[in-house]
Simulated scan of single mutants.
Amino acid sequence: MTVYVNSGAPQEAAAPVEPSVPRPLRFAALGDSLTAGVGDRVDGGWRGWAVLLAEALTPAGGDGDPAGRRPSGPAPAFHNFATSGALTRDVRAVQTPAALAFAPDIASVVVGVNDTLRRSFDIASIARALDEVCAALTARGTVLLTACLPDPGVMLGLPAPLARPLARRQRAVNTLVHTLSARYGAVHLHAADPAWVADRSLWSADRLHPGERGHRMIAAQFHAMLTARGLTLGPPPPREPERPPPSRTEALLWLATAGAGWMVRRSTDLLPELLWLAGAEVRHLVRGTAARLDLRADLALTRALTALPPAAPLARMGE
């Protein structure tokens, strides 16, 4: 076949160009049991907010919308690297290299509560590890999702001498996460909001992990913020649970089995440290010097943030 252009000279027609298929959005989830889905049990396993968000990133149309009311496209690729019990150093050493190999466009990094429950808690080490994770991901143009988290002492209803040291640690971790979220342009969720913490319908029997309703709320709020940045494709995840909340009997059964096992494991690590911290708390309260503990924690956080290296310029998604 011959076509003619303005010069009048005949030219051979070019071969028809196949329409390019857009690259699927890639979403990686890094973190601990919260992101692994603990508290949202389905079919004998855990689902969780990251899976719900990944499903909501799937473009409508095609199989998802037979009527074709919205544009369709390739389904996002999703990988959940989160593991129960993970510390910040585990996310840096194990999960981040695997996530970088996955080359995500969006990556959630939600971690830190387990660090507050360990004798090895050191805000400077946590700051270095989390900064390295954020820097490595954003250097390739990945959009970060982050969240500050509730104080585990409040969630567990611990007495003040036990709860205050944990609150101090979680406050430091949340301040660190706020700082790094601003530094790396993250989509940040304030999951430590008092209203969120006080609503028991959002939490599972263990009082540390969200239930299905809570996981759905996290997924929906991240979806809304991603939509504001023009980064979502599908409709938001439904907020209403598909399953009834655990009965009182089921909750007591969990506490007597898995919950008891959790306490036994923590007793060899956290409990001795927590008792020592509680003793120091009581001594300072008696002396009227409790403010020194807060000042000491604030100073350690300031030093940790000051010691971080300068942030590199952020890459845009896909660069």
Rank of each mutant, 00 (worst) to 15 (best):
P310S: 05
W203N: 00
L270H: 03
A205C: 15
V17K: 11
P245D: 13
N114L: 06
A307N: 05
L252K: 14
A228L: 15
P22M: 06
V94K: 09
V109F: 05
M263S: 05
R207A: 14
M217Y: 00
V94Q: 10
A36W: 03
S204Y: 14
N174A: 09
G230T: 15
G48F: 08
A251N: 08
M1D: 12
A127T: 06
P66W: 02
L226A: 06
D298M: 07
L189E: 10
P238C: 04
A311D: 09
T96F: 00
E319I: 09
L255H: 14
R248C: 01
A304W: 02
A82H: 05
L202V: 04
I218T: 06
L166E: 09
V173A: 13
I126G: 03
D298Y: 02
L149P: 00
Q11I: 12
R119Y: 01
R283M: 08
L34E: 12
M155Y: 00
E281F: 07
R216G: 06
C148D: 12
A258D: 05
P24T: 15
T88F: 06
A107F: 13
T142Y: 00
N6I: 13
P194F: 01
H188T: 07
H223Q: 09
R128E: 01
M155F: 01
A219S: 14
A54T: 08
D105M: 01
G279D: 06
T179D: 13
P59K: 05
L189A: 09
A36S: 07
E240K: 02
L100Y: 02
L255P: 05
I123N: 07
P150W: 05
L233W: 04
V111D: 11
N114F: 04
T116N: 03
E18N: 08
H223W: 10
D32P: 02
A256T: 05
A29L: 14
A56P: 11
P241T: 07
G44S: 05
P19V: 14
R316H: 12
A256N: 07
P165H: 03
A67S: 15
V143M: 09
L34I: 14
V197I: 11
A172V: 06
R47H: 13
P76V: 09
A198H: 13
P194T: 09
A101P: 03
R266G: 00
A101T: 14
V21Y: 01
N6Y: 07
V17N: 11
V113W: 00
G259C: 07
L233H: 15
A82N: 08
A163M: 13
P244D: 11
V197F: 03
L202M: 02
A15K: 11
A228V: 10
W46L: 12
